[in-house]
Design a protein around this nucleic acid. Structure first.
Lengths: 196, 196
DNA sequence: CGGGTATATGTCATATTTTACATATACCCG
DNA sequence: CGGGTATATGTAAAATATGACATATACCCG
């Protein structure tokens, strides 16, 4: 059922982490396809430990609060592998931007343009971030040699999709904004052949 | 907060509908970007009516159970328009397929291939559906003339994005499957130059 | 006539997620 | 020294969403 635990296992399979670390990784590396707040993470870790998927070791720190580093058990790996080969259940998509687009006929084109320009900028910014990340990862030997059983390659694969997604979304926003701008111009500014 | 009500208003702005109709439309037309079950829809409609965004009229039927047809009020339109121009809040993405991709290094390439082939087929199927829908809608005068303030155009715009999304996702799945297949061949089948 | 599907509307328990509350140390800046 | 940020871990209330239960009519197929 709950994919949250597999998201946590996905990260813990790469290296032992604390709950705090997990929340950070989610905001940084897996944010594009999975994310959770610490308030969801801590209880889930406790539950998973109770079920024997994880163990933890308390690391005493003087400079900072003590922390609990979680490590996957054999049962944890087995659970992750078992889930991995299960067919993906189609999940409902929810995209507020599309919902607004669907209602855009209710407002003036010039009022709507800002929404699409803002989203375009948002997706362009993420695109830039992902492109910077992939540039580094692409140089790794495992990725160059298509070593599919490496962490690096699977990170690369998700980034490739992320880039494709952001680029596509940004393009669509631009098309939409331009179409609206053109409609707004025609509506009242008339069609002045020579600008200014 | 709750975008569900705006999803309902988005559909009701186009024509008065029953709760049952709304559930159907969500599965059919807005499924790509918003969906809800009837168990969520009925209570929300009641709440919205109480808040004055909707009114309903009971239609007696002999052949079937009586139904409640909901119509938006002026306050409903005002609420939808107000929401529409608000900036889109970035929502967390959750994509189980990407999560599995991220862990794919844990299993054998030949075990993973099926997942990607299945998703490719899934996205291709949706692509086909959307392409059939857009073919009809593209012929409408409002769409041809880029009449952005028409229901038809905004439907067209969301479909365009849907098609782009599905095509991109299917392509990525194909790339992933092919990369895994190639890795699986190299791993044990060696590199037989001449097949069979 | 029994079973399945479509129409039609609801409730309720549970699961999932977010937001807010809560605490504690240490560092840096002004 | 006060305020902000980062590290670190939790709890609890509230919002959101799913899945199951519940009922009723009518049609079609075998």
């Amino acid at each position: 059922m709950t994919a949250l635990r597999y998201a946590l296992l996905a990260l813990l399979a790469r290296s032992p982490l604390t709950g705090y670390d997990l929340a950070q990784r989610m905001r940084q590396s897996t944010d594009f396809f999975w994310t959770a707040r610490h308030s969801q993470i801590y209880p889930e870790l406790a539950q998973m430990e109770k079920e024997g998927l994880l163990t933890h070791e308390t690391v005493r720190q003087t400079e900072r609060p003590d922390k609990k580093v979680f490590t996957m058990t054999g049962a944890g790996y087995a659970a992750l592998r078992a889930w991995l080969v299960q067919p993906v259940r189609p999940a409902p998509e929810r995209d507020e931007m599309m919902l607004k687009t669907f209602c855009a006929w209710l407002i003036e084109p010039r009022e709507a343009v800002g929404l699409f320009r803002a989203q375009e900028a948002e997706h362009m910014a993420r695109l830039t971030t992902y492109e910077a990340l992939i540039a580094d990862i692409e140089r790794l030997p495992d990725v160059r040699s298509r070593q599919v059983k490496s962490k690096a390659f699977t990170s690369y694969a998700t980034l490739r999709r992320g880039i494709q997604y952001e680029r596509g979304y940004a393009e669509w926003c631009r098309w939409m904004a331009e179409t609206l701008e053109s409609a707004a111009r025609e509506e009242h500014g008339e069609h002045r052949e020579h600008a200014e």
